[in-house]
Amino acid sequence: MRLELKNISKSFQQKPVLSSVNLQLNENQVISVLGKSGSGKTSLLKIIAGLEKPDSGDVFLNQKSILNKKVNQRQIVYLFQEALLFPHLNVFDNIAFGLQAQKVEATEIESRVKAILKEIALSDHSSKFPLQLSGGEKQRVAFARAIIIEPQVLLLDEPFGALDVETRENMQKLFLKLIKQYGISALFVTHDLKEALMIGDQIAKIDHGHLRTYQNKKDFIQDEKSGVKEEIDFWTKIQEFE
């Protein structure tokens, strides 16, 4: 097992945000975490990344507790909703950042960055600065920057939320391709049902700080509380209306 959460609880100003959350993420697995705004999704990811401390519970990576490890020593990359490319660095340097921080040799950095730039179809943009890129291009660079360091776990906090439908679909495909290619385990947070079903090998749903993980997608679809039924009803009604 790659990542395990045991009884994670967190409150802000005595208001519980996460209540005894348990989760298991296997190697090369992607779990989609569905939840509305304020359901505790971001807090959950930040606790795993080490950006916030839980009130109780523990986080295990490869069977070892990482609760007291610093953010930069966890080998867990947290991707924000926004691409957050470093504005003073060009595309190449943005992608190379993590490798440079790990003091990887310059020649190796160059070959790895060039290879991933090819994967994300941005080879011609390596010397461009973030301001010169579109929203989709920025997200591709953000992805490449995270994946190139081959983290143990990748945490994605609604990364495609701000993209248009077409770019979003392209990004979802690219994400699935790269995540399998690099063999990375990931927690993918979204509020979009279709996206969750498309991306995740397994689905989890968070509601008012309570996390429920479904055994498989079929269980999730059959659960009346999952929201799938409402979605199907909606599209059926639309078709009838037409």
Partner: peptide, 22 residues
């Protein structure tokens, strides 16, 4: 959003010092 940039930088493996200077 410098706090977020700092968090991201550390998440990518940079130390506090590297994050500050770079």
């Amino acid at each position: 959003k410098l706090n977020e940039y700092q968090q991201l930088s550390q998440s990518l493996g940079a130390s506090s010092l590297q994050t500050f200077w770079k």
